[in-house]
Amino acid sequence: MNVSLTVNGQAVTRDVDPRTTLVELLRNHLSLTGTHVGCDTGQCGACTVHLDGRAVKACSVLAGQAQGAQVTTIEGLADGGLHPMQSAFRECHGLQCGFCTPGMVMAAVDLVKRHPDPDEATIRDGLEGNYCRCTGYHNIVRAVRRAAEQM
């Protein structure tokens, strides 16, 4: 089946098997490998992208469901430089192995959009859908707080 959508500002159309998930479309058909897959039950959040401006788990959305949608991935988050959230993750050491990072950053951007001035509890609660096995979340929380001040 044909799926047409806009990814990082570019209109794309691909002929895919109907069981293709959005993350498979991004990774395997569009070579956008920044979005990762960490589980098969929709918990880990490594695949988080923005679908029509909202964070979703791209493993839990079929490509067909994204027909006509605007999708933003980690590769399209910033024009040129780093997005304030990306910068804050770097400054606060909010990443180690980097695998959960793209999903975490995309979730965090969505979080700050909904809560422009989040306290620690709001940040921790808002990142419930993203696992990180490296950082213990401590520096991720700091990074989101810092980014919120700059966004």
Partner: peptide, 27 residues
């Protein structure tokens, strides 16, 4: 039917559901 798909997708991925057609209500 598939609405948001947040449960159904997991069932499909685990091969616990076997629909012939998914009718997407997203539109």
């Amino acid at each position: 039917l598939i609405a948001g798909g947040q449960t159904l997708l997991q069932s499909l991925r685990q091969r616990l559901a076997m629909p012939s057609t998914l009718v997407d209500l997203g539109g």
